[in-house]
Design a protein around this nucleic acid. Sequence first.
RNA 1: GGGCGAUUAGCUCAGUUGGUUCAGAGCACCUGCCUUACAAGCAGGGGGUCGACGGUUCGAAUCCGCCAUCGCCCACCA
Length: 882
Amino acid sequence: MELAAKYNAAEVEDKWYAYWLAHKFFHSEPNEKDPYTIVIPPPNVTGILHMGHVLNNTLNDVLIRNARMHGKNACWVPGTDHASIATESKVVAKLKAMGISKEDIGREEFLRHAWEWKEEHGGIILQQLRKLGCSCDWDRTRFTMEPALSEAVINTFVYFYKKGWIYKGVRMVNWDPEALTAVSDDEVVHKDTQSHFYHLKYFISDGQGNPTDKYLVIATTRPETIMADAAICVNPKDERHFWLKGKKVLIPLINREIPVIEDDYVEMDFGTGCLKVTPAHDVHDYEIGLRHNLPVLEIIDDHGRLNEKAHILVGEDRFVARKKIVKMLEEAGNLLKVEDYTSPVGYSERTNAVIEPKLSAQWFLRMDTLAKVALETVKSGRTKFIPERYVNTYRHWMENAHDWCISRQLWWGQRIPAYYLPNGQFVVEATPEAALEAAQAICPDIKAEDLHQDEDVLDTWFSSWLWPISVFDPEMPGHPDHKPNKDLSYYYPTSDLVTGPDIIFFWVARMIMAGEEFMGREPFSNVYFTGIVRDKIGRKMSKTLGNSPNPLDLIETYGADAVRIGMLLCSSAGNDIFYDEAQIKQGAAFCNKIWNSYRLVKGFSVDPSVAQTPAAAAAIRWFDAKLSETVALVEDHYRKFRISDALMAIYKLFWDDYCAWFLEAIKPAFGQPVDPETYRATLGFFEALLKLIHPVMPFITEELWQNMEERQEGETIMYAAAPTVKPYAAGTLVDFELAEEAVNGVRGIRNQKNIGPKETLELKVKGAFPASVIPVIEKMGNVSMETVDGFGDAQGVGFMVRTYEMFVALSGLVNVEEEIAKLEKDLAYQQKFLSGVRGKLANERFVANAPAAVIENERKKEADSLSKIESLESQLKVLRNS
RNA sequence: GGGCGAUUAGCUCAGUUGGUUCAGAGCACCUGCCUUACAAGCAGGGGGUCGACGGUUCGAAUCCGCCAUCGCCCACCA
């Protein structure tokens, strides 16, 4: 097959992906080999691929392919998350566009639409991952809301309820007035927000509900909530407010009488020292209210509008009401002053609506024991975090974990299995039948239609925290007594998890909790936290900024291998990624380089009667060692999750060592054949390089590997054994490096003197230079080389390769003055260096304290420097005499 | 307000327990080359007092203190 001059990714990629699928190369079943398991961080079922996914899944794929080539039974379980809020809001928006509201059609009809939407858009992202080359075991694809996994979720709920860790309670929760649901503390983002501090006069009541002329002043950012005030609170130690003791004051505008109370919570030096207490609409006020037995008056409805209990501004949105009430207060003479004020305000992570603290009945899961156990998992190192510093973040959160609000006022999700009896009691059971039975134990004559299931669904994370267990054995989580099935026993605990640090609490921490609770051990050994993908000037990628490229377009243009490599080149663990298309171009260039090096090798004609050149023999010996050295380095990088370093090491091995040095050293003259031994070695190295880079660039490596020789149907580079480290003599590497430096020296002189590469030069070297690499220097530098005792008084240019003096004879081309100036500069540098070294050696304390090896090294530096100085001086002498 | 992390070449980052001529890599840049695998290429080259100051040490990019700037996480001062 003739190879095109340029690599065409598009032609190659679909072909091999189809081949891999057809042969089920990604599929894993338990066997006698060691498992290597990854569960995918399940993307939202209706999501589409963005650059963050590309980074994350490329890393996952590199790890899984690398493990596979190292003889592990590699299993990467894919799947999607039902993402209750995100998906529900998309469906709501779609229905809204059709003029339908979710309340109009009711739960069942809404869910029908939602499933329809899921069928239509769901799993697009999984198709896109195929384009990227991900080697997921598609036969194992899971969905967090598929029947088996939903059952696991329900069973888990029942399990914790019966254990007494799930309770229903009326609590102040974070209410999202747009999504119309409670959200957990972790779904609230606090942002400093410009607002105002309104100083309001509350007049003292005369006891009959009439204002006197005395007043106190409170400062608030939320004047629209004054109608819900239950008291004014001052610090009991605050002398300024002693006169208020036992007084009652009137709420402005509505003139309702409220008491003045005392509580330590109030800071004396903040604001005016008087706090308005609004138990229904502020978390702390609620707690003060509990302590002082204050009434709770809710004046804001679920949509964030004032209700009739506010008496005024009824029906107005809270922010509109704020503006209007300020004006009313001003007109009524209650507004003393307005200050600019910046304070942290909670926003819903999902809708960006300002969170309204709201009192409501919600379901909670106790976190104390779960968090304690899961903290120990990480502290003990059974689960390692990379980078390690995330352990601190984790510890802090775990030590302060609040109970988890797991109910959501949504429909898309697993419905809470609590069933209410007509008398308000409830039972929690996995099925309606079991619930009926339990209910009948309370009220014998109750019938199925008398029971009413809780309207709420569970937080999405309440299903994804089971993911590393439930994808293998959905029976397990809710039934810890259940014996794990074959898959779960084999694949659990999984090996590595690659995810973003933004979901360390939502997901990672909770998977560890569930893993410990149900399996008695950690769900994964390592968690590798990636950074956030930003554009090249550091902005987060977002739809509104339009700075996020479509990964599929990039794959189309540059090929999946190039996109993968481009993402990895700049991704050290835990650092944000500054995405730049230039990196992908670099990846594409690398593909092309690999492609063309293969074209060269494949174009060689082999002649058994030709003898191997000494240069080729030396190059083979060297590259063999170089390969082993690099493989060891790469494996070390992989162990430490330094994926970009591993990639860079292979990149340089391929480009610099193999292409620039090895191939050039063994390359026969144009039109000449190569000997069989060299050819075999060259192809062997090429194959090793393909295998080494395959985890990162799966497509081009498969294409070339298949092309190298006749392969059987069903063979693949995916399962080829990774190159191993072989012992080698250290001198092999050093000798070749000397040759490289000599060649570089000659090339430098050519460049400087404008001598073309085709003109053969004479190179002399003083002393015992390793003979085996001399042919390499002669070939690569286009020189004829000889070892001499001295350079005599020939005209030319000298240079040093480590301690070897080299000399290129150049009659007539040498500018004597220039050479002298250059040598003098070198000499001055050497003398300064030498005096530095000697200073050190003359320092008694250095000699007394430094380790012997260090001192020995200083002595060697001194000797080397002396010999260099000697050489420079003798060269100068020759030049000055000429 | 509390905590964590960062600051090294124009950019993105390495630099492992203080000591090999340790100040590095990739990209970018400059110069010269269309040399028969590759111009998505080849050869060569310039560029940083390692954020500031102070300290420990024979020796500091590396350890300590303080300051500055940036980023992230957590947090109920109305």
